[in-house]
Amino acid sequence: MAVKAYILVQTAVGRAAEVAQQIRALDGVLLAEDVTGPYDVIVSVEAESVDRLGQLVVAQVQAVPGITRTVTCPVVTL
């Protein structure tokens, strides 16, 4: 069963569009859109396990230049 999550991303001023474009190119990313509000980009991702989700966030998403902070919100079924 795949693990899905939303990643809320804050970027340096003026970098949201560039960051979203770079994130869209990563494997496992379903959607990355620039938004307004406390976060600059919202990302939807899917991974085969929680460990792979962690690797995607830490090794790939957080490595994109211009990102200042991320918050990962795993999707749960209640």
Rank of each mutant, 00 (worst) to 15 (best):
1 M>W: 08
1 M>E: 10
3 V>P: 02
3 V>A: 05
4 K>E: 15
4 K>H: 15
6 Y>P: 00
8 L>Y: 09
11 T>G: 06
13 V>P: 13
13 V>I: 12
14 G>L: 07
15 R>W: 08
15 R>V: 01
16 A>F: 03
17 A>P: 04
17 A>Y: 07
19 V>P: 03
19 V>G: 02
20 A>W: 00
20 A>C: 08
21 Q>F: 10
22 Q>M: 08
22 Q>G: 01
22 Q>V: 00
24 R>W: 04
26 L>W: 04
27 D>G: 11
28 G>K: 05
28 G>L: 08
29 V>S: 04
30 L>W: 03
31 L>Q: 14
31 L>S: 14
34 D>C: 15
34 D>I: 12
34 D>N: 13
35 V>I: 10
38 P>M: 13
39 Y>L: 00
40 D>K: 05
40 D>F: 01
40 D>I: 00
42 I>Y: 05
43 V>Q: 06
43 V>T: 09
44 S>V: 12
44 S>A: 15
45 V>Q: 07
45 V>T: 09
46 E>K: 11
46 E>R: 11
47 A>C: 06
49 S>M: 05
50 V>K: 11
50 V>W: 12
51 D>E: 15
51 D>R: 15
51 D>K: 14
52 R>A: 15
53 L>K: 03
53 L>H: 04
53 L>T: 03
54 G>V: 02
54 G>C: 05
55 Q>G: 14
56 L>Y: 05
56 L>A: 06
58 V>W: 09
58 V>I: 14
60 Q>A: 07
61 V>N: 01
61 V>R: 01
62 Q>M: 11
62 Q>Y: 06
63 A>W: 09
64 V>I: 14
65 P>Q: 14
66 G>D: 04
66 G>R: 05
66 G>N: 04
67 I>A: 01
67 I>G: 01
68 T>W: 06
68 T>E: 12
69 R>P: 02
70 T>M: 04
70 T>Y: 03
70 T>F: 01
71 V>Q: 12
72 T>A: 06
72 T>P: 04
73 C>Q: 11
76 V>R: 09
77 T>Q: 10
77 T>N: 10
78 L>D: 11
